[in-house]
Amino acid sequence: MKLFTCQSCGQHLFFENVACTRCGHTLGFLPDRLEISALKASWDGLWRALGSRHDSHRYRMCANSTDYGVCNWMVPEDDANPLCVSCRLNHTIPDLNVPGNLSLWHALESQKRRLIYSLVRLGLPIRSKQEAPSGLAFDFLADPEPALNEAGRVLTGHAQGLITINIAEADPAIRERMRQDMAEPYRTILGHFRHESGHYYWDRLVRGSQWMDAFHRRFGDETLDYGQALERHHTEGAPEGWPAQFVSAYASSHPWEDWAETWAHYLHIVDTLETAQQFGIRVQPRGGDSTRMRTGHLFDPYAQRDFQPILDHWLPLAFAMNSLNRSMGHEDAYPFVLAPPAIEKLRLVHRIVKDPPPTA
């Protein structure tokens, strides 16, 4: 994620800010520029980026901002859609008549926009299902009340471009309980978005393409019965020795899940590396084999054609992040070990992202 500053006073901003905490200026994210800008209102209700007096571009606020306060992205003046490029991907939003659902939806939208930012930075195709049948859409659904049994629960997943997220995932207490129940080292809303987007982009970038042979060599045969594979994983767990081959235990369940987990980790890595680069973070530990752990900050992971520099920057940064977390009494920020086969899978994901098939 890029580091943003207020054009009015120079205050550093978070991606989610809607107003500058120092000078009070209204803020908005401009998707066409990938920038958060301080805004000045026009007489007709539209907005200009502060300091762009000679810039003819004007914007209006996303309808989900003006109506519900859950979005800070702007819509260009000449775009007839009342929703921003992120919110127009929504197919179903939570029932806002239910107390608490607005705050849960707000949390989901905040993390979804981080996903969309990364997809745009990678140059991946993003179209809504309203624009094209092969497009992307999101359902944010709640369990029925009461959820009588496991079969009646809303399952987070993907099917033909429609990503479904159970809004309970936006409740930190519920999500943490589920993480512990499933013995997962890591469970976040953003992780769900990134994982499920991996299933979508497998359909768009890999299925039936020139990458199928390479996919089979690295990930295996996706024609294996998917339902049986997941049932076996949930009843028997991951096979012994899975860390030597997979990025996570769940990745061992089926080649599709291996791809989606690897895809999610790829997005974790490039976005975190961009954040580190924007802050000028430089890892150069003292003592030991420090030459293998040095990494500079003049580096844009989204612009790399070769995966090796990404890996060379990531491994020392992940070690530093985990060390800092442990110093604060927290669990590791990145609680994973990347074995050589998992690294080669990440390398293949990178190649496919950088050289998508013409039909993508």
Score class of each variant (00 low, 15 high):
T5N: 11
G10W: 06
H12A: 13
H12T: 14
E16I: 09
R22C: 09
D32N: 13
L34N: 12
L39P: 06
S42F: 00
S42N: 15
W47Y: 15
W47D: 04
R48I: 05
G51Y: 01
R53F: 10
R53H: 11
H54T: 10
S56V: 09
S56W: 07
R58G: 09
R60D: 04
M61G: 10
C62P: 03
A63F: 11
T66L: 15
N72Q: 10
D78S: 09
A80D: 15
L89I: 06
H91W: 06
I93P: 00
I93G: 03
L102H: 08
A107T: 10
L108G: 01
R113Q: 13
L122W: 08
G123A: 05
L124C: 03
E131I: 08
P133T: 08
S134V: 06
F138M: 07
F138N: 02
F138D: 01
P144T: 08
E145R: 12
E145W: 12
L148S: 12
L148D: 08
R153M: 15
T156Q: 03
G157D: 11
G157I: 02
H158G: 02
G161P: 01
I163P: 07
T164C: 06
N166V: 04
D171M: 07
A173R: 15
E176M: 06
E176T: 10
M178K: 14
M182H: 14
E184C: 01
P185D: 06
T188K: 00
S197W: 00
D203V: 02
L205N: 01
S209A: 06
R217Q: 14
F219Q: 07
T223V: 09
L224T: 14
Y226L: 13
G227T: 12
H234W: 10
G237A: 03
W242T: 07
P243K: 07
P243H: 04
Q245T: 14
F246Y: 15
A251M: 03
A264N: 05
H265V: 10
D271Q: 13
G280A: 02
G280F: 00
V283T: 14
T291R: 13
R292T: 10
M293D: 15
R294A: 11
P301H: 02
Y302V: 05
R305E: 12
D306P: 02
D306N: 14
L311C: 02
D312G: 00
H313F: 02
L317I: 12
L317D: 02
A320K: 11
R326C: 04
S327G: 13
A333S: 14
L348S: 05
R351W: 01
K354G: 10
D355G: 00
P356W: 00
P357S: 04
